[in-house]
Every structure is written in structure tokens, then in C-alpha cells.
Computed example of a mutant assay.
Amino acid sequence: MARPLVADIDLDALRHNYHLARSLAPRSRAVAVIKADAYGHGAVACARALEAQPAQARPPAFAVACLEEAEVLREGGVHTPIVLLEGIFEAKELAQVEALGLWMAVHSDWQVEALLAHRPARPIPVWLKVDSGMHRLGFSPEEAVGVWQRLAAAPDCASDLQLMSHFATADAVEAGYFRRQLARMQALGERLGAPLCLANSPATLAWPDAHGAWVRPGVMLYGSDPLEVPSEASRRLQPVMTLRSQIIAVRELEEGEPVGYAGRWRAPRRSRIGVVACGYGDGYDRHAVDGTPVLVAGRRTAIAGKVSMDMLTVDLTEIPEATIGSEVVLWGRAANGEVLGVDEVARHCDTISYTLLTGILPRVPRRYSR
């Protein structure tokens, strides 16, 4: 019998979340961001599920971070255009960009020079990255004017030019900095007559003014709410990954007895403790505090004691029906329909859903359902 821990991936929920993004930005094209192995969900399986929809519902493009991620998709039979969000890392990668029919961001002078010197057989679609205030990658708005003009003057090298930027605070309630970034990009787009790709997941959910020619939903595709305060739209997201295991042992403890390493949790009364087949060796966050929520047999309870490499322990005192073999949901949807959001779990681990989802390790099998 196999170890019971599995990451169930609901591809219908993935499609639902993508359609939600499209419905929120009906005048925009929605590139589906599937970098980091589709945020831990399996990039090839997710891309093929989205690609297999009727033509009018398919993503016009996928987005990944680097060439290696694009190669995996092409080898997996994915034919949709793919945008390299960080562009190339060496000039020699341009040959593979061309061979695989990829689109690419350019954010540095050396990338522009490499592209113009490459002279591809077919022009490469280019997304010009502008630093509107995130201060990671991109040209300043003033620099971007000259770069755009150079690329536009080289139609044999670059085609289908888009302006792209990234918001630092689109998830926040305080919108001042977000609005300044948006205003810079809208002014630049108007000056150049350029199509804009600005809206990440939070901006797609909450800021229609930012939608532009393209939106690029990322973490929202996987059912995580990126907003500081949930909105009506974000409450419609469905969890895609359910991290599911079982109780593998039960212990009866007297009041005051400790559980786990360092005895961090002590029974406040006579207690039942369940041992779960899941630990930080699987990618579950070892910083989860006592009280981190868990579903056992579809009912809410909590972690009791430090997370170990292969196991964690939960309080079963108020769930008398729980026994060896009972379902445990670390996040996602239980068999009875009860949902435990990955964002809630992340808050108890002092982290964000992105780290939990992308942190699930290869020894946890992914099981796909439609």
C-alpha cells in the first residue's frame, strides 16, 4: 500500500479560474502564467488542460520564467505561444527561442543588442519590460521610448511589440503607489500607441482600469486569493490543489503530556492526537504553528506540535470518529466539500500561498482529475 499523501489537482477548477479571469477583463487577452511548474501543479498537465478547451476559451499564450520551462512544455506537446517573462539569459538562447516559436520579454540593453544582432529567420514577438516602480527588471519609462523606437524600426527582428510592467502593490488596500505606476504606464502607452500588459492576478481581480490589451493571471489560476482584503470576485476562485493524506496512528495523552520535538505542544486536557503522513520533507512548511488549521474527516482541527520531516500531529479530541485511515486535508477541498484555503494555512506559517504551492516536493505524487 502506497503512502497516502497526494496532491490532487482539479483541472476543472483550473479552467474555472481561468474563465473567471477572462470574464473580469472581457476586452483583454489573458495569458496564463504557468511558471515554476504551474506554481507546483504540473505545468504540462495544466497547459494541456487549458489548451484542450474549445478555441474561443483557450489561452492565446502561456507565460513562463525561462527557456528551460518553455522547453518542457514544448516537449510535453504544448503548441500555444509561450512568453519568456525574463527573456533570455545568454545571447545564444535566441536560436532556441526562434526554433521553439517563443515570445520574449526584453528588459536590458544587452538583450536588445543581442536580438538586433541575431537576425532571426522570422521576427520574434517582443514584450518590452518597463520599470514603472517595482524596481526589479525593466527600462525606465524615459529609456523605454528609445528602445521601443529601435525595435519598431527593426521589423525583421522584432514583431508584435507590447509594453509590459509589474505592479508592486496591486494587492493592497492603500492604492496610491499602484495608481502612480498605472498612470506612468498609461501615459507611456498613449505616447507610443502601444498595447499594454500590466495586470497581474490582483490587478485582474480588483483593478479594471489596469486590464489593457492583456492581463496575465498567475496565482489566481490555482485558487489562491492574492488580495489583502478578499473581493466578491476573488471569493469565486476555486482551489485547484488539495494536499490530502490520512491519519496513520492515534495516541491518547493525559493532561500536560508533550507532543513532538521539544515538546512545544502540551495537552491542555486528556487528548487524542493523530499522526499524519505529511511533513517538511514533502514540502509542508515546518514553521506551521500550533493551531494551524487542518481538516480531518471533513472537520476543522489544528496542528499540535512541531512539523517533522515525514509526519505532523493534529488534535483529534473533538473529532471522536477520526481514526486510522481518516482523510486529512492540509489545504484544499475535503471529500465532504469543506474547503480549507491555502491562504489561511500560509498565514499561520508566516508565509504566502506561493511558497506553499511551489514548495511541494517531487516525492508527493500529483493526481489529476477532470
Rank of each mutant, 00 (worst) to 15 (best):
R191D: 01
P202E: 14
P123T: 13
A144K: 04
A114V: 11
L102T: 07
A203S: 15
P155E: 10
A194H: 07
P195F: 14
A114S: 09
Q111Y: 02
S159L: 04
A210G: 08
L128K: 02
K129F: 03
V126Q: 00
L100F: 00
A194Q: 05
S159T: 15
G189N: 07
G212F: 11
R136P: 00
E174T: 15
R180Q: 15
L196S: 05
G133L: 02
E174I: 14
E142Y: 05
E174G: 12
L137T: 14
Q149W: 01
G146D: 03
A194D: 05
D156V: 09
G212K: 04
L151M: 08
W103P: 00
E142L: 08
G189A: 13
G212N: 04
Q162F: 12
H107G: 08
G176W: 09
H107V: 03
G212R: 01
P141W: 03
L128N: 02
L115C: 00
L198K: 06
D171E: 15
G138I: 07
V173R: 06
Q111C: 03
L188I: 13
A213C: 05
G146L: 04
A183I: 07
A117H: 03
A153W: 00
L163W: 10
P208D: 14
R180K: 14
S201G: 10
L100T: 00
V215I: 15
Q186V: 13
L116G: 02
E143M: 08
D156E: 15
